[in-house]
Amino acid sequence: MSSEPIYQLTVSPDFTPSHISGWYIFNTWLQRCLNARVHCELYDDFESQRQAIVDDRVDLIYANPFDAAMLVREKNFTALAKAMGVTDECVIAVAETSHITCLEDLKPGTRLAKTDDPDINLIGMIMLESVDLSDDSVTPLLVDSYVLVAKALIQNNAEVGFFLKDAFNEFSGAVRKQLRPLVSSEISDIQHMLLASPRLMAHTEPLRQALADMPKHLQGNSVLEALNFTGWQLLEQEDTEFMIDMIDTLKAK
């Protein structure tokens, strides 16, 4: 029996379904890069992924910014890189047939469809705050995916929904035609990031270099294409601290 460790790679459950295969391709590249065994585990929801983090089962994670704060401050993870040009933005949308034309039309008691994606829900509620709506004054409908948020709007089970912008933009034309965006965030400073656990400490620097060099190689390029990324931007500790500070300001009540 080999005593060689098996590391675990996981990805924030809010990644778009069309990129599932991309993460498995990334995992294959990663194993070659590290010359180590890495298992790619994709969790269905944030709760089960957080439990894996608490249990110290995760070694490398493409994390939601909310979880990044916890991973860095409580679990001593190191931020390696973020995808170039990819930011977490929220679209607030209604059904195409809805009488609601702007945020000001939303009233207390509004039925809101959302997933358990923490940063999109936070950004969405910040946008609703400007029309005096809060968690206490909306009627939430929690569903498992952005497709189900769309379905809730189309079937009039909710009046308004929160979407990750990338997920909204990837809906088919048939779905998009039945939805109407009211407002989209333009924050730019909140992003997912790739973080490594203390167990991966010895591999951190070679991995950072390999991530930075990915676009220079044919194989790296095809992996990036599968993820729909153009490249990785390396993160310094202060970049990570800054984003965590930002998330803290947004979470503060």
Binding site: E241, M246, T249, L250
Partner: peptide, 23 residues
């Protein structure tokens, strides 16, 4: 506006301010 102290290595090194749309 929300302003928080930036704490690094146990000391305050500056402040971050995030402003958003008020009602």
């Amino acid at each position: 506006a929300t302003v928080i102290p930036n704490v690094r290595n146990g000391g305050v090194v500056g402040y971050t301010s995030v402003r958003r749309k008020p009602s």
